[in-house]
Design a protein around this nucleic acid. Sequence first.
DNA 1: CTGAAAGCGCTTACAG
DNA 2: CTGAAAGCGCTTACAG
Lengths: 356, 356
Amino acid sequence: MNNRVTLKQIAELAGVSIGTVDRALNGRGRISTDTKQRILKIAKQLDYRPNMLASSLSKKRKLHIGIIMSCKPEEFCNHLIHGVKDALDEISTYGVNTEFIFTDTLSYKDQMKAVSMLDTDKFDAFLVNAGSRSVGDWIDGIVKDGKSVVTFNTDVEECNRLCYVGENPYSAGLLVGNMINEILPKAKKIVLFMGFKDNYSHSERCRGVKDAVRSANPNVKFLELEYQDVADSARQKMEQVLKDEPDIQAVFAASATGVWGIGQVVSEMQKDSRPKVFGYDVNHKVAELMDLNICQATAFQDPYWQGYYSMKILSEHLLSKQPITRDKYIIRTKLVLKNNVKDYLLDRHQYDGFLL
Amino acid sequence: MNNRVTLKQIAELAGVSIGTVDRALNGRGRISTDTKQRILKIAKQLDYRPNMLASSLSKKRKLHIGIIMSCKPEEFCNHLIHGVKDALDEISTYGVNTEFIFTDTLSYKDQMKAVSMLDTDKFDAFLVNAGSRSVGDWIDGIVKDGKSVVTFNTDVEECNRLCYVGENPYSAGLLVGNMINEILPKAKKIVLFMGFKDNYSHSERCRGVKDAVRSANPNVKFLELEYQDVADSARQKMEQVLKDEPDIQAVFAASATGVWGIGQVVSEMQKDSRPKVFGYDVNHKVAELMDLNICQATAFQDPYWQGYYSMKILSEHLLSKQPITRDKYIIRTKLVLKNNVKDYLLDRHQYDGFLL
DNA sequence: CTGAAAGCGCTTACAG
DNA sequence: CTGAAAGCGCTTACAG
């Protein structure tokens, strides 16, 4: 509509039928090279841009997309889910529908168990929150069957996925490390807590923290601990490390679970002997610790938009047949302080008047 | 398509023509109340949701939207413009086109001069970067003519605009104030620089900074200065204030222009006598000052998404005839440190793999 | 290799 | 108050 050129206009100018114009423009069926060239030239001259509405309406396509992800912790995963669903709402009239395949954790075992019971033939594509490197093999198999896969929230680089949509955990770690430098420019000893040392996101976040702190403060010492992503375990490890090393000035925990366990211990300490706590992710417990000045800063991954854009990028690619141009679409991790943490505590991302 | 219910199916079930179903569902023309009720009931039972593609395709509507904004500083405004254009790309097949009305500044005078030469009858709606309170009167006149107005980037609350899309400058100020507290928990004297004291955004940002700092540090003293949003003016005021008050520990400037002027002066001082600088907005000069450890933190407004979503919200409202449900759509202002400032220095928002 | 025609789901005059 | 029909711009069998 508007002033835009249509197939019909091109057909008239070229003296052919609109079916032929379609063949020239979309490479369907057989067409002689010279009429094709003629039509292509006219289309370019007139700046023809196809009307996607009409195109979508006439090809009554059905796309079935599977979403493989964990459903807990709910406080985090619900944001991912809502993002995916909102994107789906925008494109469901184009014939896209989805099926969520939830697992309890992102472990290889859990994900493979869920996937093995799946009739993958029903699906045209998958969105996968790739929890572990080994999922890459499954993805490669799927891709070999001609299906498309986009990873989101966590990535597996060495596989044939189309692209990744999510944070860069190393950069996010640098940012938190930068904050530690601002608050404790002369820290001597810092403890880094990881849920699992071999969890890519956790270890990358810690690597970022270390690199940022070391670059400003080369003599700092780091201790690294694992808490199995369980708050009680973090609490116990924290108690132990405080006994062994009473002079630690800062603690970083790579997940909200760890922040909570550590925060419990710190809250029982004398105010002037407390180490500063730097966390990851936002939930009500973390917010509470920030309010008490126990946790100084945390990081927000924007899971809603990770879900939204992974879904949107995948389905637009499938619908338009246009190639995906980038390997990674990075959602920047945001630094959250006491004062703005409440802005990130939304039951659903867009509630309360916040958009981004 | 898909499994979704169509007008035709409803028509068959109700034993009427699809024209009648359309009249029932969309309140067009005359229709007897009982057939209307019957059709509405069936539609609800079947969960009928109109196919917006088909709807848009058949009503060959043309919407003309005017965008009133300043075109400088370019480093900032280009992000707004690109956001608006990208949103437009997504909806131009729905028959929306736009016209930019650029002014040199956001002053009432400049904006009214541009607007007075405008044939407002051509337009269905306006997006306006409302620079001053007085623009509200013009907006009210436009709205009285039956046109829709959305404000973006800066707001005028007391007028009949549909909604505002942009930052909350007071909250953003709180965030920067929070950062000052973390770095200088015992600051005694802080200078606040505003481009213009009666600029709403600038004064709100400063109010936020003050409130946040005072809540943690009640005895702090504030000095307030104006620099007419000119770097050289900021530089001179800074030199003067350092003479009068050599013991200032922190400076906040409410715009990038001010940060640059102030940063020049600070860079010429001895390292150990330098006050810490906290800024606003991101550009190459601010990034340079951060790299030199002169500016400790700055705030990022996300102008790209302000432009994108203001355009998207306005046009979706016009196209769908659905009411806008919120008065304000807030884009959260992000805290930027030395380490991540480069992630925000993009020629165009989505370049370099960053999405959000 | 090319054309004519039906159809996607909706809207909009036009009859009656 | 209601129906039948044309049309939005494109795609897709089906003829030729």
